[in-house]
Amino acid sequence: MKTLVIVTHPNMDDSLINKRWMEALAQYPEKYTIHDLYKIYPDEKIDVIKEQELIESYDKIIFQFPFYWFSSPPLLKKWLDEVLTYGWAYGSKSGYKVGGKKIALAVSAGVNEEDYSATGEYKYTMEELTRPYELSFEYIKADYKGIFTYFGMEVNTTQEWVEKSVSMYLDFIDSL
């Protein structure tokens, strides 16, 4: 089963982790389709019908993005608002076109995992902070499979650290 990876990074050229993940995914075109929202929609005008048709053609979907301001880049929020419409994604007999599809998040986080804990600087775990995504996917009857988070990109920028994330990320996707 081929996986659609919806990547949302507003400045991919300056990315260490997300750019490397995309390079790794691109090595397996028979397994993964990369859908880079900022590249496809630089004007942020989303082709809703095209996006819905794309979603309908995959059973496994990953949303990959950097975590900042305790959320996703704004284009992903806009995509969710515009693409997951009433009558298609939820709310009618013909809705729930995403129902049953396996959906997961892949998030890069700048600080260490300890900072995302009850006793850490940000007081909440990554699972708690991404709960709105989980609830949204459950609302449209998708099969939410959780989150892959790679922490510490602001403090661990060695090539070895970046490369370590690649196999972990691909293993996460393949395990869904």
Rank of each mutant, 00 (worst) to 15 (best):
D36K: 04
D174G: 02
H35V: 05
P74W: 11
Q64S: 10
L4T: 11
E127P: 00
W88H: 03
S136K: 03
S167T: 15
S117L: 00
E114Y: 11
L129F: 07
Y124N: 14
G87W: 03
K102H: 13
K78H: 12
T85D: 05
Q159K: 15
K141E: 13
T3L: 07
K31M: 13
M12N: 01
K19S: 14
I62N: 07
N11D: 13
K50E: 15
E128I: 04
D143N: 14
T8F: 02
A26H: 13
D47K: 07
H9G: 06
G87L: 00
Y133F: 15
A118H: 15
K101V: 09
Y58C: 02
K141P: 01
S94R: 12
T158E: 08
M12F: 00
E163W: 02
Y169G: 00
Q64A: 06
L54K: 13
P10V: 02
A142T: 08
E134L: 09
P10M: 13
P132F: 04
D143L: 06
P66V: 07
I140P: 05
K123S: 14
V162W: 04
P10N: 11
G110S: 08
P132A: 04
E44T: 06
K60Y: 13
Y32K: 01
F70C: 09
E138L: 11
M22L: 08
K45D: 06
E121G: 02
I61A: 08
T158K: 00
A118E: 14
L75K: 10
K77G: 02
F67Q: 09
P10A: 12
Y32E: 02
P10Y: 12
D13R: 12
Y41Q: 08
W161Y: 14
K60L: 01
F65Q: 08
W88N: 03
A142I: 02
G91W: 00
V155N: 03
Y58Q: 04
L4G: 06
Y32I: 06
L105D: 12
G146A: 10
Y32S: 05
K77A: 12
D14P: 00
M22A: 07
Y41E: 08
P73T: 06
H9P: 08
I34K: 03
T158C: 11
E82G: 02
L25K: 01
L105A: 00
K123C: 03
D13Y: 01
P74S: 15
